[in-house]
Design a protein around this nucleic acid. Sequence first.
DNA 1: ATTATAGTTGAATAGTTGTTCAACTGTCAA
DNA 2: TTGACAGTTGAACAACTATTCAACTATAAT
Lengths: 117, 117
Amino acid sequence: MEDFECEVLDEEIVENVRKQMIDDDTIFDVSDFFKILGDSTRAKMMWALDKSDMCVCDLAALLGMTKSAISHQLRTLRDAKLVKFRKEGKMVIYSLVDEHVKDIFEKALEHVLEKEN
Amino acid sequence: MEDFECEVLDEEIVENVRKQMIDDDTIFDVSDFFKILGDSTRAKMMWALDKSDMCVCDLAALLGMTKSAISHQLRTLRDAKLVKFRKEGKMVIYSLVDEHVKDIFEKALEHVLEKEN
DNA sequence: ATTATAGTTGAATAGTTGTTCAACTGTCAA
DNA sequence: TTGACAGTTGAACAACTATTCAACTATAAT
């Protein structure tokens, strides 16, 4: 017989789930959001900025990375609207945009720590 | 003068944050967790499995992908202990491991939808 | 036994992404 | 106006990863 790829086996389930499925754009937005936190450098930066606003240089020193690397990642975080910045003289001070992320971070942390066994 | 990379500017802040910093292993685990949900295919699969347990074939049909691609991603989700499976005849039925992920997903969804403007 | 189907797997490919490097801007101080 | 420093940027490189392809296993039915 022909080698067709994937016929539906349980029509009822598939149709039912398809009806409840959120639209592609939203799923993309959600996974893009997770992608941002899915890099340990960015995750650390968010964690650090949650503790205190900081300039690029201090973030770099804290994490033991170059200013360039940190600046690139801050750009990513800015594009994702997770951090904002203000200028103070030569320095640029970054801070978190909202508290929302903190909640998600802490829930994820719970989840991860729970699994450690 | 020498071109040193990144001297600490605000000792007090950096030291204070350093003391509150969570350890590297934990940050890695958390960002690895986010990385899993940071792919739209896997995000969709998790979303679908939250609505109903499903076999590989139906997941593939629902998402319009090959069984192979889905199977590979299911392997990733299994390794991350986010899904489990049971066998029914020729079929392998996958389901979510816990409710924890659902919470995080929904919080992230809130966050994303809130920003849409 | 043979055929069809559900699913898995490893290798290969193509696309993505994090960091480095070097060159740049803007601000402050002498 | 010159030098030093905080930060940004684009290009390049290396590492990673999602999907495809082909070959495979296992179960069920004829």
